[in-house]
């Protein structure tokens, strides 16, 4: 059974339809890239899957791990193992990163009927993940994302992902605004977390991130629809030729 099965998904923001029938199947262990120009609906798809309430689902279905994802609250989705790495991680002054992570992890454990981690167990886990991701420990005592550089914010997202250990990770434009070193650092983190149990959806505008996070499948989103799917070579073709040929194909098909 597929981990994620999206069928005919339609979604609107402020009454304007952004997603116009998305079909996508993702299995455990796979990495999918969703590429597209700004405004194509990539981030909308990511946010709809995470459950942001500004987005209204107007049609279609999403089955995640055997459950109707669209029926779940955002926190239930998170506890079921879905993780969205935000395009713009939110700053939360006054909430310390460690406290936040502990609250999140324990919420998830409680959901699954597991006891809370002790302080020692939690710290052990956190330190192990920091080491894998080569992140400095000072990150722990800072307020969540407050005063972080763009690169630090994205790495903090990956760090949260490592601690929460999701089944399905959606990286929403994790490369945007980062220089090449920062992209590499983030990609190394993502790659370190790859596993046969985990699926990853990488949403991006550019191919360059995919040099480091090599996808099994690439899908191109245009005007709210997936207009092309293929292997990683599709991303290279897009890099070389841009999106114009897809626009023409689409126009041709419409005629």
């Amino acid at each position: 059974m597929a981990l994620l099965e999206i069928k005919g998904l339609h979604a609107a923001v402020d009454g304007r339809e952004i997603l116009k029938g998305i079909d996508l199947t993702v299995n455990a262990g796979e990495t999918h890239a969703i590429m597209g120009l700004n405004g194509s609906g990539k981030s909308t798809l990511a946010n709809v899957l995470a459950g942001r309430d500004a987005y209204e689902v107007t049609g279609g279905s999403v089955i995640y791990d055997g459950k109707d994802l669209l029926e779940l609250e955002p926190e239930e989705r998170a506890c079921e193992g879905l993780f969205l790495a935000f395009q713009y991680p939110v700053e939360i002054p006054g909430v310390n990163n460690t406290y936040f992570l502990k609250a999140a992890l324990n919420a998830k454990r409680k959901y699954h009927g597991q006891p809370e981690l002790t302080a020692v167990e939690f710290l052990g886990l956190v330190k192990e993940k920091l080491k894998i991701l080569h992140i400095d420990q000072s990150l722990l005592n800072r307020p969540v994302n407050e005063g972080f550089s763009g690169g630090e914010k994205k790495r903090n997202e990956i760090f949260q992902m490592a601690v929460l250990n999701p089944k399905l990770a959606i990286l929403d434009e994790t490369d945007s605004g980062l220089d090449i070193d920062a992209i590499r650092a983030v990609a190394d983190g993502v790659n370190a977390l790859r596993s046969p149990e985990r699926a990853t959806i990488v949403v991006t505008h550019y191919q360059r991130l995919l040099n480091y996070i090599v996808p099994d499948f690439v899908h191109v989103l245009l005007h709210g629809e997936i207009v092309a799917s293929g292997g990683k070579e599709l991303a290279l073709k897009l890099e070389k030729e841009g999106y114009a040929w897809l626009e023409q194909d689409l126009a041709g098909a419409a005629r």
Binding site: G51, P74, E75, A78
Partner: peptide, 17 residues
């Protein structure tokens, strides 16, 4: 939303903030 997307309930998120 950010806190909820990490697993905290809406009530917990509001209390924490």
């Amino acid at each position: 939303f950010y806190l909820r997307s990490r697993g905290l309930s809406e009530g917990e998120a509001r209390r924490l903030l």
